[in-house]
Computed example of a mutant assay.
Amino acid sequence: MEFFGNIIKGIMIGIANIIPGVSGGTMAVSLGIYDRLIGSISGLFREFKKSILFLIPIIIGAGIGIVGFTYAIEYLLDKHTFVTCMAFVGLILGGLPAIFSSMRAKVSSGGVGVFGILAFVIAFAISGGMPLLKESKDALTVIAVTPGNMVILFILGIVASATMVIPGVSGSMMLMIFGYYYAIINTIKTFLDNLRAFDLAGMKDGILLLAPFGIGVALGIFLIAKLITFLFEKYGVQTFCAILGLVISSPIAIFINTGLVSKLGSLSLWEILFGIVLMAAGAFVTVFVGER
């Protein structure tokens, strides 16, 4: 039963990773598996069997979430921006009780301290302010198959995956900042279309572009997991305070990064009510799935 439950959690993490402004790391925190996920990645070679048994369903689910939601994400964010964003805000904020519970286990009688508060403020400012760096429109929608672009995609994979693992920092948002988000989404969609049509030439181009990106993603996740494991062990309270700041500021990043701020004045009453309902439902789903 835990295997299928982890597949569901992986699906939610995968979907979160392709939505600009939403962090897969935040979703993992909200689902109550962040510590174990990071521990399994950083301890992959030390406790291989235990780690791989936990990671396999997460990886399967994340793959399903990314592939299944790649076609839907642009439509939902373009046509139903508010309700889509509110659903994910609920999914993220529904994990706050789990974060507070984990923090209480680390906090001593002296409280979080000055450095804990400082970590919260800095993390909040970074997560809330990073979307402001994004250009208003991505010019690049197609990536040519060249050695230079393959190297760029490998580097982008490392950068994006490292931020995917950090709660509150969106890997998709980083790709938007660098101007490659829609190009990579289109590359994935084109590869899947060619796979269904069994177009070998088209599949080859997709593999040549997505393989270096995927290798970069795997390498980045492993490297940042080692760092986060160290931070949890040495600076547990401050790390949790920073995570809390990143998570709480995530809705700000989502609203700015999806262009929702400019649309708030044109929302109908029904859209607002439906968005609130979806936010509550998202929070319930996170709490329910996180307890499984």
Rank of each mutant, 00 (worst) to 15 (best):
M150Y: 10
G21K: 11
V289S: 14
M27Y: 05
G14M: 13
G65S: 07
V261D: 10
P131G: 10
I188Q: 03
L140A: 04
M27S: 06
L96V: 13
L153A: 09
Y180H: 07
D205Q: 08
A125M: 08
L153N: 14
I13C: 14
A183L: 02
L140N: 05
S42E: 14
G290F: 07
I18K: 08
M27N: 02
E291K: 14
I92G: 00
P251Q: 11
C241E: 05
D138Y: 03
T190H: 08
F120S: 04
Q238G: 01
A201T: 05
I228V: 08
F191K: 06
D199C: 04
G129N: 05
S268T: 14
A87F: 15
A125D: 07
L156F: 12
L53Y: 00
L267P: 02
I184M: 13
V151Q: 06
V67K: 04
I215Y: 15
N149W: 07
A281G: 03
I64E: 04
E2W: 13
G202H: 07
S30M: 10
L209N: 12
K9H: 06
P147R: 15
V142F: 08
G110K: 15
T190N: 15
F69Q: 12
L210W: 05
S109F: 12
I248F: 07
P131C: 03
I143N: 01
I11P: 09
G220Y: 02
D35H: 11
I228H: 00
K226M: 15
F222G: 01
F100Y: 12
I52A: 01
L156K: 07
L53C: 01
F284G: 02
I207Y: 13
D193M: 14
L231M: 12
L208M: 13
N194M: 14
I122E: 09
E291G: 07
A242N: 11
F255G: 00
G5L: 11
K226L: 15
I215C: 08
L219I: 15
L200A: 11
L156W: 07
F48V: 06
A123K: 15
I155W: 03
V287F: 10
V142Q: 11
S262P: 09
I66W: 14
L273G: 09
A105D: 15
N149A: 07
L77I: 08
T70P: 03
F88L: 02
K79P: 00
I92N: 00
F255P: 01
A280Q: 10
P251T: 09
F48M: 10
Y75I: 14
G111A: 02
Y180V: 12
F198Y: 06
S51V: 01
G216V: 04
L264T: 05
V29P: 01
A201K: 05
G110I: 05
L31E: 01
G32D: 00
F82T: 04
I254F: 06
I256S: 04
I215S: 02
I177E: 07
L175R: 09
M86A: 15
L93A: 03
G95P: 01
G236N: 06
I19P: 10
W270D: 10
F274Q: 09
K204C: 15
V287R: 08
L278Y: 11
G95T: 02
E2F: 03
S42I: 05
Y181Q: 06
G168K: 04
F230T: 12
I254H: 06
S30F: 07
G157E: 11
G148L: 14
V217H: 04
I243R: 12
S266F: 06
V107D: 01
I188A: 04
V29L: 13
C241Q: 08
A72R: 14
G113T: 10
A242R: 02
G275M: 10
V67F: 12
